[in-house]
Amino acid sequence: MNLNTQKILNFFKKSESKASVLLKDKAKANDTIRDAFGKAVNNKHDLDGVWTKMTLLFGIAKDYVNGDYTEIPKRSIVAILGGLIYFLSPIDIVPDFIPALGFIDDIFILNLVFKQLAKDLEKYKIWKDSQINFIEDVEGTEV
């Protein structure tokens, strides 16, 4: 199958535009993240190669929208939400209902986002791990 990368990138740019608007409405942003996560869980077998990356994208998007983690440039969050919006779209460059191939363009975009934001995501992962360790330390403290 020959993918038209330029078409995919143009579609992704439209998704990023939608993400910029979406960021202004916390409830809708959270709904989008939750919907994308639900779709990912339902199609986990098709997303094996990017599952770990996706869970990191879901986590940072949720923590940013909820105000828990804001140490990331807004353009990076727009790219992440744009990727999730692209992923949510059932009719994109390769429609998701096509068996075995339906998620190939989605995976391409999610990998692209992940690669572009690798440093931001690594900082988030360190922060997230420190939050988990802090909670474990507090819970383990005797009073």
Rank of each mutant, 00 (worst) to 15 (best):
K128G: 00
N43S: 11
L117G: 03
D63C: 09
L47P: 04
V21C: 03
K18A: 12
L9A: 12
W51H: 02
I33K: 01
T52H: 05
A40F: 13
M54I: 12
N133H: 02
T32Q: 04
D92N: 15
L56G: 02
I109V: 15
I135Y: 05
V65A: 04
P73W: 02
F134R: 05
N133D: 06
D129W: 07
E71C: 00
G49H: 01
Y69V: 05
V94K: 09
D137R: 08
E136S: 00
I60H: 07
E142S: 11
V143A: 07
S15P: 07
L47D: 08
I77C: 00
V143E: 09
A27C: 01
N42P: 01
N42E: 14
T52Q: 13
P73Y: 07
K123M: 08
Q131C: 10
Y64D: 06
V113I: 13
L3T: 06
D120Q: 13
A61Y: 02
P73M: 02
F37R: 15
I104S: 15
M1A: 13
Y69L: 03
I60L: 08
T55S: 05
F58A: 05
Q6Y: 12
D120P: 01
G83M: 08
S76I: 03
M54R: 01
A79K: 12
L84K: 06
I8F: 08
S89A: 14
D48T: 14
N4D: 15
E136K: 12
A118D: 11
T32E: 08
G49Y: 05
L9N: 12
A27R: 12
D25V: 06
A118W: 02
D68E: 14
L84W: 04
H45Q: 10
E122C: 04
I77D: 01
D68H: 12
I85L: 15
N42T: 07
N133R: 07
T52R: 09
I85V: 15
V78M: 06
V41Y: 14
G49V: 06
K53L: 06
I98V: 13
L121H: 01
V113S: 05
Q6G: 11
I135R: 03
G140N: 13
Y124L: 05
E142Q: 09
I91Y: 07
E139P: 02
I126M: 00
D48I: 13
I126F: 04
T5Y: 15
F58Q: 08
L121T: 01
L57K: 04
F58E: 09
E16N: 13
N2H: 10
N10H: 11
F108H: 11
S76N: 11
L3Y: 13
